[in-house]
Amino acid sequence: MKISVDIDCTPEEARAFLGLPDVAPLQKAVMDDVQKRVMDNLSAMDPETLLTTWIPAGMQGFEQMQKMFWSQMTAGTKSKD
């Protein structure tokens, strides 16, 4: 024997019927906090700030790579003398 029951209710009504907590206020508070953090951090995404943040590290890495190449090249020429 097979019995099926169709219940037509909203999610809020189902949560209330099953005794589950209403998490809508908590979800709204969390989403408001996330939105505030995203908006605050958008100021760090302007091109000038990105360049000043990335270029020094990139240039330092490039200079280190150049020094490594030059030291390898000069080491090769010194050993042939």
Rank of each mutant, 00 (worst) to 15 (best):
P11R: 06
T77M: 08
S71T: 11
M73Y: 10
M1P: 05
M31E: 15
Q72I: 15
A16C: 10
D22H: 04
W70T: 13
G58Y: 09
A29P: 02
T10R: 08
D40R: 14
M31Y: 06
T53H: 09
L26S: 03
S43Q: 12
D40K: 15
R15E: 05
Q60I: 01
C9A: 15
L20H: 05
T49S: 12
E63A: 15
V5Y: 00
W70V: 13
C9E: 07
A16P: 00
G76W: 06
V23T: 07
G76R: 12
V5S: 00
I7C: 03
M65P: 01
N41A: 14
W54M: 15
D40H: 08
M59C: 04
A57R: 10
K2A: 03
W54S: 11
S79C: 11
C9P: 00
Q72F: 06
P47Y: 06
M31S: 14
L42F: 04
D8F: 02
M65L: 13
T49R: 10
I55R: 15
E13P: 01
I7S: 00
Q35I: 07
L51Y: 02
Q35L: 09
R37T: 14
D81Y: 15
M45R: 10
F62D: 10
S4Y: 03
L50S: 08
L50V: 15
D40L: 15
L51G: 04
T53Q: 13
D81S: 11
D32I: 00
C9M: 12
Q60T: 08
L20G: 00
Q66P: 03
F17H: 08
K80T: 13
F62P: 00
Q64C: 05
S71I: 08
M68Y: 05
A57D: 05
M39Y: 06
I7E: 02
P56C: 05
A57F: 11
Q60C: 02
K78I: 14
T74Q: 08
G19H: 05
E63H: 07
T77S: 06
G19N: 05
S79H: 08
A57H: 08
T77A: 10
A16V: 02
K28M: 02
M68K: 13
E13G: 09
G58N: 15
K2L: 09
